[in-house]
Design a protein around this nucleic acid. Structure first.
Lengths: 456, 456
DNA sequence: ATGTGGGCAAACAGCCGACAA
DNA sequence: TTGTCGGCTGTTTGCCCACAT
């Protein structure tokens, strides 16, 4: 009775039956989770970075070295549960890891148990909400192909055709919507029930909704907020210094006793990379800012991935590579770059760590940008043939306006595979948007002639 | 640029100019903070308890002993800032502590620098919100004496008398209310602006609002939620095991290097004490549950308080004592009990700790209840004369219903000094409420004859 | 194909005194 | 003294289409 009113821990966590497809859809296309039972590599240094990201506090005290804690621990993944924050619906995973003993460690390098599960659902759509979608004046405008693909078919003999949709979110809450096909020209709309959902989830223009239609004819829906982690305030519990002590001490203790420990992995805390381009259009200089989410800070990766990258891949300064990025519209793109150095990120505390040991330069960034660092397993070295700097990329986006999150002139397609979008900032103001905004249906983003032409 | 959108740390914390009176009013009458510069005693064990309370997770892994960490650290309090959670307005404090070196420790016991600041404001009122107060149908009914005491006087030549009130909350946000004196009979009301406040703070019936009128003729307002900590979900950042490692490692490191460390103190995470009574009324057995908030888990206390309690007070089993409690309506009450034992709470990990070393029995609880534990400095031993068990106390309250937080049949007075309230649960259902609900104006709670009669 | 806005009806918010506890 | 309610407006919500992109 001393814990009256404290039983708020995510109920879906207790049951452990959170919908995996939906979780992955919300986590994004780059996120894959190691398989339960497989061997993984855990990087305390990367874990530390995530704590910095989530507490928004750098460590400002002297944290001693933990001699028993190497920069990476080879572990057995005993348990993995997917969760979603009750307040914000932010997805995260809890993992139970057990460091292998020295004997097991040696054996670990022999069999390559590859095992990463990334069940991106097939029948789903993702739409970035417009001002109309989130206003109280109306409902939700469903992209036609999306509605046809993931909603149950309407009875078109009715006038107008309409039905009730029931969808479940990550917490297994039920949401009911009236789905109607009307208007001139005809279109799919969600009316009654939509605004309740918008206000309950506190959605604003720019956020995204995801609908999934699975094999069992069940409908699910999730949300992805527009790059602003909401919680970012564990405050009042533990100082960020103590948190860093905590993760190091927990890992060190587990390593020295070969016992299990738990970590939380939040795939939506990305490493942000910033690209800046200078191009010329309409005889006016254009500055193009591009902020991309790289692979999330994966501080637990499959052992096989680590072994392959560290022991079976030869990298050297000057070598060219490709790397996957998630765009603001949540599709995947590859960017190219060159390795400019290989060195310790923190040679004092974490000597000989492979975590972000590779300094890189991006083809598209100006020389003025500081070099970001990546880890070996994040990049795909190109050894076959050398490439000269590629033409300017297409997935451009200006940094999120710090104030209100309103959108103008944006276009997305209807199935999550968005087409390129270019927003320019420069002397000619927003005029450039018009000339670059297009729908590249059936055209490879890398090959779209119009944008390439406009950039050079 | 890698921290785009992450600057959400409480702005008032940066400036450090949060209104102290308001903070204390929200923290409650039992909370006092040590003075900056003074010497305090820090209990890692108590800190641990607060982490358990805020994460709602017991430690389920084996945490090793930290040999360099004694059960209590004598520290210098270098810095103390008051904060309020941006989302929930929950108050908390950050303290910077520096363990004294052995030489300083010895000296510490000589001069008794007493120093606890508890600036409970004088001109304030606290009202528990009714269903009418929080409904969208109307405004806020201001208790007459409260309005006269803390609101600027109305111009009664107007018909009806009305004015605009501007009050600031803990985040220095401005809230405007129309204050009007009307109705038949006449009463003070807050109308326009009130519902905006209620929905912005997500207040429900049972929560409390506090208005303060200070010497500079400024009006402040704060809230206190009805015993349900809202956040309780640091989740997704660090496992509770790691948090325990963290607080211990941080304190141990600071102790061994005599360096500073930071802690968060959340005064609203109380120790809940549960009292159960059995009485007879209307020929039906009545079970009366009483849940009280004890002194909060004060794991940082003034050194003088510690020295006095531990070295200058003689306690023994069988001794009677009094202890302060905060009631559901946020006034202070003393309850009496008897010391039933003195022993380590955790003799393995924290031998010879004074943290909750005193086992007690309460006069009002039945024998079936397990004995709670208190610390020496929380109680006030009675050495003058022995007392037999006091008549049943009056401040009764049934445990908060787990579901919706609705109130019925509650009465509070207008100045935070609430009068007794009795709610019964038993075979006769809620009928008992009627017979026990009263206003004891001018009657000492301990002496109210009607309730005493009804209980025995 | 789909975002926005005007028109309109129904629902809700919110101010008032009456009444009762 | 103050909590709740019925009565009564003014505002908002939310469904419909037209129109523009």
């Amino acid at each position: 009775l001393s814990s009256v009113g404290f039983n708020q821990q995510s109920p879906e966590g207790e049951k452990g039956c959170l919908n995996s497809e939906l979780w992955h859809a919300c986590a994004g296309p780059l996120v894959s989770l190691p398989a339960v039972g497989s061997r993984v590599v855990y990087f305390p240094q990367g874990h530390s970075e995530q704590v910095v990201a989530s507490t928004n506090r750098e460590v400002d005290c002297q944290i001693p070295n933990y001699p028993s804690l190497p920069p990476q621990l080879i572990c057995q993944l005993h348990n993995l549960t997917m969760h979603a924050d009750v307040e914000t619906d932010e997805v995260y995973a809890q993992m139970t890891l057990q460091p292998l003993n020295p004997q097991e460690q040696k054996e670990a390098f022999l069999p390559a148990d590859l095992g990463a599960t990334s069940k991106q659902p097939t029948n789903y759509f993702c739409k970035t909400l417009t001002a109309s979608d989130t206003s109280t004046h109306g409902g939700f405008s469903v992209p036609r192909r999306a509605a046809e693909k993931v909603f149950p078919p309407l009875d078109f003999s009715q006038q107008p055709p309409a039905q009730e949709l029931i969808a479940r979110d990550l917490h297994d809450n039920e949401w009911k919507f009236r789905h109607i096909f009307r208007g001139q020209p005809k279109r799919h709309l969600l009316t009654t029930g939509w605004s309740v959902f918008v206000s309950a989830k506190r959605l604003v223009a720019g956020d995204s909704v995801i609908f999934i239609w699975n094999e069992k004819n069940q409908l699910f829906l999730g949300i992805r907020r527009a790059s602003r982690p909401q919680t970012v305030m564990p405050s009042s519990v533990l100082s960020s210094d103590s948190m860093h002590f905590g993760l190091l001490a927990a890992a060190a203790h587990a390593a020295s006793t070969n016992s299990r420990f738990n970590i939380f992995y939040n795939p939506r805390y990305f490493t942000l990379h910033c690209f800046i381009f200078v191009s010329c259009e309409c005889l006016l200089t254009q500055f193009i800012y591009l902020v991309l989410r790289a692979c999330p800070s994966e501080f637990v990766i499959p052992l096989a991935k680590y072994v392959k990258a560290v022991y079976h891949t030869r990298v050297s300064v000057g070598m060219r590579f490709r790397m996957l990025f998630e765009t603001e519209e949540s599709s995947v793109r590859r960017y190219m770059g060159t390795i400019t150095g290989i060195s310790d990120l923190d040679s004092v505390r974490w000597p000989n760590s492979h975590w972000r040991s590779v300094k890189v330069g991006w083809d598209e960034s100006t020389a003025g940008e500081r070099q970001p660092r990546v880890s070996l397993w994040e990049i795909e070295p190109l050894t076959t043939f050398p490439m000269y700097p590629s033409p300017f990329p297409l997935r451009l986006k200006r940094p999120w306006p710090p104030g209100l999150p309103s959108f103008n002139g944006m276009k997305d397609n209807d199935l999550g595979m968005n087409y390129p979008l270019a927003l320019l900032r420069g002397d000619s103001g927003d005029r450039g948007i018009q000339s670059l905004n297009f729908q590249g249906i059936g055209v490879s983003p890398l090959m779209h002639p119009r944008l390439e032409a406009s950039m050079l």
